[in-house]
């Protein structure tokens, strides 16, 4: 993934909900540099979900309908502890 795309992903981690901003900010700072190319693609895909759905996935309140994204969701959740 080229640098522009990476920076675009960083900006798109800014959301309409504070709870998402806080969680994704930490994830972006701490984990993003370590992600593999396929993981980055999955994270980019996850960012396509509406804010409320995304928050529910990250809080474990509901399950993301796409199982391929479960590992990246688990990783974001783990970054909070």
């Amino acid at each position: 993934m080229d640098e522009v795309e990476l920076k675009r992903i960083v900006w798109r981690s800014r959301r309409g909900l504070l709870e998402l901003d806080l969680q994704l900010e930490r994830f972006v700072a701490e984990d993003l540099p370590q992600l593999t190319e396929p993981e980055l693609v999955l994270y980019r895909e996850l960012l396509q979900y509406p804010d409320n759905d995304l928050l529910d996935y990250l809080n474990g309140r509901s399950e993301c309908p796409n199982p391929r994204l479960w590992p990246i969701i688990a990783r974001i959740r783990a970054a909070q502890r």
């Binding site: 798109r12 800014r14 959301r15 309409g16 909900l17 509406p50 804010d51």
Partner: peptide, 12 residues
């Protein structure tokens, strides 16, 4: 818009 419209803070 700085962000995609449906991610505006109205969403909160």
């Amino acid at each position: 818009s700085k962000v995609f419209p449906t991610r505006s803070h109205t969403v909160a």
